[in-house]
Nucleic acid binder design. Structure first.
Lengths: 189, 189
DNA sequence: CGTCACCAACCAACAGGATGGTTGGCAGGT
DNA sequence: ACCTGCCAACCATCCTGTTGGTTGGTGACG
């Protein structure tokens, strides 16, 4: 189905997601994205306007997709965090995109971090703990998520710190278990 | 004192630290680094060889400096984590450099993460808990450090998640306190 | 002590190539 | 006939890395 803007757009977003996740905004190459999408480079400008605008679209789409796929934390919060961990481990793109964005100098205020995206998670989390959502709960959830992200965030750091004591054992598994164990403290008040 | 390689080198490293921390390897501009250092661009190649090599030197130097300045965790582990948090908050360069490096595609195996840099911390941490250093302890320490890094790592995420419930209060303070409170869980287990 | 030769440190200018973005025209669907 | 998605080719700029030549310090030697 040629000559279909939606299709072209989708191909570009897909290609750009991979490119941006791997190389960041500065490192990404418009040529490569277009080539990877099997589309002319001009289409990027015709459809999105600029490289940066394309990045915003990519990040927003990735966040929506992940927020949806991750579901809500239920009764078994620890299990949920385990899932989050495994999910990031298996699909590091969002995390990498987030990091690239966080590093973005100047920190241009983007519309990407719409709070609506998160409130459902915070509320589900608070509900699972049987309390009303507040800043404390949100912080706790934030802590959980970051711990779950850890091995994907800083593989080198994890390897260097834990590796020497792991004696060939699975570093990631150890860290993962430790994070889950830590939940009691993060959840407790 | 002109015509002094050490001085030139130091100026370049200083300038490059700022440039790399802000923009990463791909975003950094050799011109700007040289100009900022008040030195000809060629000196970078004469002294370090390449932009990437310069980055490695910068990261290594930053890590050494920070590892030294942060000291060892003593009896008051929570207090130490608080210090770590505040330190990263006040000096985000190392954290940013670490993130840039972690994002580095391909993950060229660098000599930067020498385990010797960390073992002292792990041992001090284990000693403070009265046990022998092992993978569990290292993981716990890793978790602490990442929690301390959190607000600096993902300011947007923290702001979006916690902000709506903070009602104008200091988001960072809330998160910081929450992280400290969480220590019990990370340490226990 | 003077000066001369040498070399490391330094710089201005350049080369080569890649990059983000643009333009003018072509073609396929309606 | 016309609009719109599309492309090939183009452009101006920028960026990393190099090169050839200059300069200041230093040690040897008269």
């Amino acid at each position: 189905m040629r000559r279909d803007v939606e299709d072209t757009r989708a191909r570009l977003v897909a290609a750009a997601t991979a490119e941006f996740a791997e190389l960041g905004i500065a490192g990404a190459r418009v040529n490569r994205i277009a080539e990877q999408a099997g589309v002319n480079k001009e289409r990027i400008y015709g459809i999105f306007g600029s490289k940066e605008a394309l990045f915003d679209v990519v990040l927003g789409a990735a966040m929506d997709r992940h927020v949806a796929e991750l579901g809500l934390p239920g009764e078994d919060v620890a299990g949920w965090v385990g899932e989050v961990h495994d999910f990031y481990r298996a699909n590091p793109e969002l995390l990498r995109l987030l990091m690239w964005e966080a590093l973005q100098a100047g920190g241009r205020p983007s519309e990407i971090h719409r709070t609506e995206r998160y409130t459902a998670k915070v509320e589900a989390f608070a509900a699972a703990r049987g309390v009303a959502p507040d800043a404390e709960n949100a912080s706790a959830l934030l802590g959980l998520i970051v711990l779950a992200m850890l091995p994907t965030l800083f593989p080198q750091l994890a390897g260097s710190l834990v590796g020497p004591y792991a004696e060939g054992a699975d570093v990631e598994g150890i860290v993962r278990d430790r994070m889950i164990t830590a939940l009691g403290g993060v959840l407790g008040g």
